[in-house]
Simulated assay, not measured.
Amino acid sequence: MYPALLALKDGLVVSCQTSAGNPVMGPEPMTLMARAAETGGAVGFRAEGALDIASIRSISSLPIIGIRKTGRSAAGGVFITPTFENAAEMAAAGADIIALDGTARPRPSGQTLAGIILRIHEELGLPVMADTDSIDSGLYAEDAGADVVGTTLSGYTTDMAVSDLPDLGLVAALVARLDRPVIAEGRYWTREEVALAYSSGAFSVVVGSAITNPMMITRRMVAATPRATSNPGLT
């Protein structure tokens, strides 16, 4: 197993990324989040974009799972590192692991998941984390050569409402079916949920918004106040 992956085993990976419109978006605040997370005991990070990855790399030697989000309008809805060129950009910025969409949906320019993973292995020398949404896509990603499979996309690839809870069932199902390690990611908000992911067989757990998105954390807390319950527009 790649050393960068082994370093994540049984630990907490903190996702230091956010989206447009959030006051903490950008390399400087995300790097401060990473520094705080490392001080708190994180074993690695997940980060988006070359600028954020390079900035975090400058202050930490912990493994970085790098991604490049290209917008939800990308071919077939694939927007997490859809091409090899995106992966190469993240590697050049300092990523130790490349995460990409691990579903069977089409990718730009006719690139295939198996082809991208092969090039990442051969040309970049890095392991690949496949972000999946189901047992079928987990099996597909394993067959394509992914080194680890994550539950990152569970609930986000259909028009159905996204659950507020992590998909622990998918974690357990993937652990039972795959020969690859499974990383639990997506909507983990409590210590109890992290512990349940490990009891379900997870190799590692990624937590993002519950640690690095103070705007969303505040909204969740505000929703419990009398003012919010009498004025739903506040939440």
Rank of each mutant, 00 (worst) to 15 (best):
D96Q: 07
D159C: 15
L139E: 13
A99H: 08
D167L: 09
G102Q: 03
L100F: 05
R191Y: 10
E185L: 04
D136N: 14
A92H: 13
L139M: 09
S134Q: 08
D159P: 09
A99G: 11
E193I: 00
L126W: 00
A130R: 00
L100H: 12
G155D: 05
I117M: 10
F203E: 02
V194A: 06
G186K: 00
A161Q: 10
M129R: 13
Y198I: 05
G155L: 01
D131P: 00
F79W: 13
P127R: 04
D131K: 01
I116G: 01
L174F: 06
A95M: 05
A114M: 15
A144M: 12
L139Y: 12
D143E: 11
L153A: 02
T152C: 02
T103S: 11
R187L: 14
M90R: 02
D136W: 10
D147G: 12
A172K: 14
A146F: 07
G77N: 03
Y188H: 11
G155C: 02
T112N: 08
H121F: 06
V182N: 03
F203A: 01
R107A: 03
D101R: 02
A172E: 15
D131A: 00
R105C: 14
L124E: 06
A146P: 02
T103W: 05
R180P: 12
G115H: 01
S137R: 06
G155Q: 03
Q111A: 15
G76D: 04
